[in-house]
Simulated assay, not measured.
Amino acid sequence: MNIFRKLLFPFAILYGWVTTIRNFLFDQGLKKSTAFDVPVIAVGNLSVGGTGKTPQIEYLVRLLCDTYKVATLSRGYKRQSKGFVLADKNANALILGDEPFQYYQKFPKIQVAVDADRTNGIQQLLSQKTNPEIILLDDAYQHRKVKAGLYILLTAYGDLYADDFILPTGNLRESRSSADRAKIVIVTKCPATLSIEAQQKIATKLKLNTNQDLFFTTIQYDAVVLGDDKVIPVDHLKNDQKILLAGIAKPKPFFDFLKNDSDICLTYPDHHHFSDNDLNDILLKANGKKIITTEKDYVRLKDSVLKKQLYYLPIRSHFLNKEQNFQHSILNFITSF
């Protein structure tokens, strides 16, 4: 934590009081929170970005979409459209935002919608000719106007909410006590070799309630990179000179997985919209070499001037243990409706 953020401590206290009062009003029913007659699962975090919400939503989609009619509902961060939008053949990353467009492209069986007003978004989804049987809310932990049936809270290994402080001194959107709303807490981005003993130490630090379940996941990178009808094994790229490109919150693990000493790593802000100048600069630096990016960035770049040289590295959320317990918790919640 730098000195400037420490100086903002009084504002963090004020912000903490505001969010605490807001949550109290919702908890006491003094502010309206709408529940729905379908299973609604909210996935989110307490901190600002970088906890792995997208692979976790995709995990849930894979778990459920062959059995149920699934819809995802996101805010559509940095999209250029307004209001409720249901993805169709005309959709793109500018209309939906990058993550929702990624869901739409990867999972043709599901409905993908965006709306900053999640209550209206759910109502609109339920008014469609084909009603979803399950709605997954992406990054909606703080959206208290919807009362989800199940809250899943993500916190990144090495950046646990228990070690953080509220904005602007720290990176928390609300106080650590807000973790109590979650039925399931997942520590994401763990080392694949994280021991049971180390997991127990984290559990002790988080101090969860007896009715909360704790799980640990890691990011599993694919063995291939994918492009426009092209597939290249990662092993074939390790020693090649290439451009590694990321516009995500915490790109270091992506770079570390692929890079060698001759690579050029280009970092952009999370959800960055690439300008023509950006693209020309990347193209110049690449000088004919392959450009490897994240899946989230690829959906924004795949139709750009980079497309002939562009590839992305798929990722998945992988449970270190107790995966069946997690799946049973999700399925038991759904069948309880």
Results as ranks from 00 to 15, higher is better:
Ile3Asn: 12
Lys6Gln: 14
Phe9Thr: 15
Phe11Gln: 08
Ile13Cys: 13
Leu14Lys: 11
Leu14Arg: 11
Thr20Arg: 15
Thr20Val: 09
Lys32Pro: 01
Ala35Ser: 15
Asp37Ala: 12
Pro39Arg: 08
Pro39Ser: 07
Val40Gln: 04
Ile41Glu: 02
Ala42Asn: 06
Gly50Thr: 07
Lys53His: 07
Pro55Ile: 07
Pro55Cys: 07
Leu60Arg: 00
Val61Met: 02
Lys69Trp: 00
Val70Thr: 02
Ser74Tyr: 04
Tyr77Lys: 03
Arg79Ile: 05
Val85Asn: 07
Val85Gln: 10
Leu86Gly: 03
Leu94Phe: 14
Phe101Pro: 00
Gln102Arg: 08
Tyr104Gln: 01
Lys106Thr: 08
Phe107Glu: 01
Pro108Glu: 01
Val114Trp: 08
Asp115Ser: 14
Ala116Ser: 14
Asp117Glu: 05
Gln123Arg: 14
Leu125Gln: 01
Leu126Glu: 01
Ser127Leu: 13
Lys129Trp: 05
Glu133Lys: 06
Gly149Met: 03
Leu153Val: 08
Gly158His: 04
Asp159Phe: 12
Asp159Tyr: 13
Leu160Trp: 03
Asp163Phe: 09
Asp164Gly: 10
Phe165Trp: 14
Leu167Met: 15
Thr169Glu: 14
Gly170Met: 09
Arg173Gly: 02
Ala179Pro: 02
Val185Gln: 06
Val187Met: 06
Pro191Cys: 01
Ala192Val: 11
Thr193Gln: 13
Ser195Ala: 03
Thr204Ser: 10
Asn211Pro: 00
Tyr221Gln: 04
Lys230Gln: 13
Leu237Ala: 03
Asn239Arg: 14
Asn239Ala: 15
Asp240Ala: 15
Asp240Gln: 15
Ile248Gln: 01
Lys252Pro: 05
Phe254Thr: 08
Phe255Asn: 05
Phe257Pro: 03
Asp261Arg: 11
Asp261Glu: 11
Ser262Ile: 09
Asp263Glu: 00
Asp263Tyr: 00
Leu266Val: 09
Leu266Ala: 04
Pro269Thr: 04
His271Asn: 02
His273Asp: 10
Ser275Gln: 05
Asn277Lys: 13
Asn280Gly: 12
Asp281Trp: 12
Leu284Tyr: 13
Lys285Pro: 02
Gly288Trp: 00
Glu295Ile: 10
Glu295Val: 08
Val299Met: 00
Asp303Ile: 10
Ser304Val: 07
Lys308Val: 07
Leu310Thr: 08
Ile315His: 03
Ser317Lys: 06
His318Asp: 11
Asn321Gly: 07
Phe326Gly: 04
Gln327Phe: 09
Gln327Ser: 13
His328Gln: 15
